[in-house]
């Protein structure tokens, strides 16, 4: 119940932001929610299924490029572009996942990292779509022909709505019999196999879904910045997404929310919003904010002992 309370409190706080803040803050919080959506999709497979994917930014970036490329080709409609972006990212996740999920542990981390980097280099070589310099969008997407997303406040609430929808969806899936297999295989894969269940197809489906959700966050990000570039797919950003998920899980368990299971998705939202705000705050203090953020991460791990020692 605490997990639900945490989520509701977070969503309520995000909902009142436009009532009390200026455009700059609204845009910042919208950005935080977009990353929260990506972090939820990552936590769905990382926290839910134990799959430490280090290529999640690539899925997000593919979604962003989906919107950018379609707009460049003349399709501005979100009802076409967003599903297309999700399909592209989901498909990339399914194809790379089919290979990556054959491996375990640290191999999986490195392979998802490598596939993410592959997508990064492909984005760099798309000379027709800006190559290394990236691609500016002519405008934000239209929704059913209407230019609703132009208004920062409408965009804010649209993003919040999608964040709530995807979070609820991920929580429901994790609670379903399908999600039970994912959660069990994370804890004790050998036992699950001995019960007659091969976790591979379950993980693959989950990975593809996470890809589609991450693609959706990328489509939103492209609209927020009205710009896409290969940097969207960089592995630093994948690392940041992992930081959001893990820092959020630690914060959530400090608040008494049971880590593991569906309850922790609220942690991912909390982590993403927290990390974006901390980064922004540090960046105000010094241009070299990473010199502070890096050691913070190290301390977080060394003092936190998030999952404890491996058996």
């Amino acid at each position: 119940m605490r997990a639900l309370a945490l989520l509701l409190a977070l969503f309520a706080a995000l909902a009142v932001v436009p009532l009390a803040a200026d455009t700059y803050v609204v845009a910042l919080v919208t950005r935080a929610m977009i990353f929260a959506l990506a972090a939820v999709s990552l936590d769905f497979i990382l926290g839910g299924a134990g799959l430490v994917s280090f290529g999640h930014a690539a899925l997000m970036g593919i979604g962003a490029y989906g919107v950018g490329i379609l707009m460049e080709e003349g399709t501005r409609e979100a009802l076409i572009a967003f599903p297309a972006a999700m399909a592209a990212a989901g498909l990339f996740a399914l194809v790379t996942g089919a290979v990556s999920l054959k491996t375990r542990g640290v191999y999986f981390i490195m392979i998802t990292l490598a596939f993410g980097q592959m997508a990064f280099f492909v984005a760099q070589s798309l000379s027709a779509y800006g190559g290394d310099d990236g691609l500016s969008l002519a405008a934000r997407s239209t929704v059913a022909g209407q230019r609703w997303l132009k208004s920062p406040v409408t965009f804010h609430y649209a993003t919040l709505g999608l964040l709530i929808l995807i979070t609820a969806l991920c929580a429901l899936i994790l609670a379903s019999p399908f999600g039970r297999v994912l959660r069990a295989a994370k804890e004790n894969e050998r036992r699950v196999r001995a019960l007659g269940i091969d976790p591979y197809p379950y993980r693959l489906v989950a990975y593809g879904l996470a890809g589609a959700f991450a693609g959706l966050s990328g489509a939103l990000l492209a609209n927020l910045t009205e710009f896409v570039s290969p940097a969207f797919l960089s592995w630093h950003r994948s690392g940041e997404l992992i930081v959001m998920v893990v820092a959020g899980a630690m914060a959530a368990s400090a608040l008494g929310v049971r880590a593991g299971g569906a309850g922790r998705l609220g942690g991912a939202v909390l982590g993403a919003v927290g990390v974006i705000l901390v980064e922004e705050g540090l960046a105000h203090l010094t241009e070299h904010w990473r010199i502070v953020f890096g050691p913070l991460l190290v301390l977080l791990v060394l003092l936190g002992g998030w999952r404890g020692r491996r058996a």
């Binding site: 430490v52 690392g239 977080l300 020692r309 491996r310």
Partner: peptide, 13 residues
């Protein structure tokens, strides 16, 4: 002996 995820995070920092 710690979790790989923790090693990834700390060395990323």
């Amino acid at each position: 002996g710690r979790d790989h995820l923790e090693q990834v995070l700390a060395t990323f920092g």
